[in-house]
Write a protein that binds this DNA or RNA. Structure first.
Lengths: 253, 253
DNA sequence: CGATTCCTTGAGACAGCTCAATTTCGGTGG
DNA sequence: CCACCGAAATTGAGCTGTCTCAAGGAATCG
């Protein structure tokens, strides 16, 4: 059930080559040479999931690995009593799955419609051994994720609710700027990919507290809301001031 | 200053070969063949730090990477106002530093006397390219650390103080058992490598709350204390019950 | 055995949680 | 285009777990 990808629409990317792939230069294949790309092209296949669908349950067998091509997905831990903590926010080019692991350690959920570029796990494991460029890129991506996780730990362990929200918005703003190839700063508008509840699961808060803090930032003019999901940041620098510090300090260093 | 390793005593391990190294089969060199070990042997050198010494400050230049041979070290983030969150607990065989990164992202501190087996960064980076066995092991270790960080995020974000303490003790017990090659379970005794304050920094609590929760577990007979640092766990299963669940569930699966 | 560091315990304050209405947004069908 | 509906978000009031501030007590080291 969990692995049953729903075909939403015929996918142009399935036909077109890796060369035109939107995540070509950020994903696990970023370092690949043209002939290596040809090999990948043989092995890859796309899967589609609707917003809200569970891609994999924690503990389920996972016979593929892959990259997010479009959309947003989350990794999360759930306790027996229902408490939930998000542990990964997967944007386009992020990698799902672990070579050498048969069972998923997390619940993986599509929060928007999602397209994955997948490889069956076994062939991909061979690929890693035979293609140093893939292994090297995967190591680098994993170390980036580890750093992000550790920054996140600082937020979870030591920041106030207000600082958590400010930090989260700043992270999104920075990622959005990077994705668009701009430098973050000044005035920006971001689209929240997550509901208040999902933000709460990200930040270790309740959805009510998230809502209250967002309202507070709004009332103080640090942000403006357009609908529920659109956030205007008139001055990113001022928002960063509210994060309590951390890596974000270097944002404008 | 930060990189000035203090020589405590002449070190036998400096003379003896990698073959006799206590972390030979867990560390980054675990997969190396005998001839590869010879190469490493040429490059490696040992450093010693006293308990309490800072090995590297966040932002400092780090011209080496290395493995913990003896002792315990921590990685931590510190905010401008002094709030601190530990983000890594490094035991023997754990790796310090990131290939390709010139500056340290964390404060690295020796909490006991520590011996590191080091490589200068540049040669090590070449080593990774030329020795797939090292690269592969490093990837695997990094992914293990990422999983540990994500488990830790669940603890930080969603668990109560009592559950945090129980989780922490359970993690230590499991690691200790693994290091001794035993299966965790039944009655165990562990040595806390950390002060109450360091435990608080690990768990995102204050030292007073840590102390109170440890006292509570003691008064309920879930643990016994021998001195400040020795903890008797009469029945690990019962302690696991108090962790609130998570990965620890599978401990006896 | 004295000193220092670490730990424990207490009392009061407060941030964030819980429970409970409303309100707003965004989509859907008339 | 408008009225309606359900999901998501907001806001309020009271509670509770953890923090803060403060005082004393134990372990470890010279």
């Amino acid at each position: 059930m969990a692995n049953t990808a729903k075909i939403l629409v015929p996918d142009a990317a399935d036909q077109s080559g890796c060369v035109d792939c939107p995540i070509r230069h950020q994903s696990v294949c970023a370092f690949c040479l043209p002939d290596e790309l040809d090999t990948l092209e043989q092995l890859k296949y796309h899967r589609h999931y609707e917003a809200g669908q569970t891609i994999i349950w924690a503990g389920d067998e996972m016979n593929f690995v892959g990259s997010v091509v479009n959309g947003v997905a989350t990794l999360s831990h759930t306790l027996a009593d229902g408490r939930k903590q998000m542990v990964g926010l997967l944007l386009p080019s992020d990698f799902i799955g672990r070579p050498g692991r048969r069972l998923s350690s997390y619940d993986v959920t599509a929060v928007t419609d999602v397209t994955l570029c997948c490889f069956r796990r076994k062939p991909f494991e061979q690929l890693i051994s035979s293609t140093p460029n893939v292994a090297e890129r995967l190591l680098d991506m994993s170390l980036d994720e580890l750093e992000a996780a550790r920054e996140w730990m600082l937020i979870l362990g030591r920041k106030s609710a207000r600082e958590k929200i400010a930090s989260f918005l700043t992270i999104l703003a920075r990622r959005a700027a990077k994705a668009e190839g701009k430098a973050p700063g000044g005035a920006m508008t971001i689209d929240l990919p997550l509901t208040r509840e999902a933000m709460a699961d990200y930040l270790g808060l309740t959805l009510e507290t998230v809502s209250r803090q967002i309202s507070a930032l709004k009332n103080e003019g640090l942000i403006r809301l357009g609908g529920k999901r659109r956030v205007d940041i008139p001055d990113l620098r001022r928002l960063v001031t509210e994060t309590g510090g951390g890596t974000d300090d270097d944002l404008f260093a």
